[in-house]
């Protein structure tokens, strides 16, 4: 038995304090502790990618990150994209290309796609497929997702 610990996180640009069990999953800290339900749980075993977020600039599967290890880090979730002004260019491309069907994989897919496009690499379909290897989608067959990522990726500075 342990005690809960108080974590200090920067979440989507704002400082947040939250109590958690040290080995609690970052995913649960976000969803239960902070009420950020946009990050989804599809498997809890690191396999599906629905729970990925950006932690200190790196894409991580939040279901495998212990809460204590996230202490002091800066985290971006799907709720941190776009903002009042509207959708970010990746979200918009997902809408335009019909890349979201049931929408359950979508937040993770968009986070992973954004991380992939940050590097400013040339994005042919093969490299997008490789970059999204950790994100499973059961609805789309990935075609429209590739199209969206290519479109938004190409539009990035």
């Amino acid at each position: 038995m342990s005690d809960q610990v108080e974590l200090l996180l920067q979440v989507n640009g704002a400082a947040r304090r939250v109590e958690a069990w040290p080995l609690e999953r970052l995913l649960d800290v976000l969803r239960h502790g902070l009420g950020l339900k946009g990050t989804k749980e599809g498997c809890g075993e690191g396999e599906c990618g629905s729970c990925v977020v950006i932690m200190d600039g790196k894409l991580v599967v939040s279901c495998l990150v212990p809460a204590l290890e996230a202490d002091g880090s800066s985290i971006t979730t799907i709720e941190g994209l776009g903002g009042e002004a509207g959708l970010d260019s990746m979200q918009q491309a997902f809408v335009d290309e019909g890349a979201a069907q049931c929408g359950f994989c979508t937040p993770g897919m968009i986070m992973a796609a954004n991380a992939l496009c940050q590097g400013g690499r040339t994005m042919d379909h093969a490299s997008i497929r490789e970059g999204l290897a950790g994100n499973l989608c059961r609805c789309t067959g990935y075609m429209k997702i590739l199209a969206a990522v290519r479109k938004a990726g190409g539009a990035r500075p």
Binding site: K37, T39, I78, E79, F94, V95, G98, G103, T106, P107
Partner: peptide, 10 residues
């Protein structure tokens, strides 16, 4: 899709 904006923003 009618439901797309809600889905891409979580």
């Amino acid at each position: 899709r009618k439901d797309a904006p809600a889905k891409v923003t979580g």
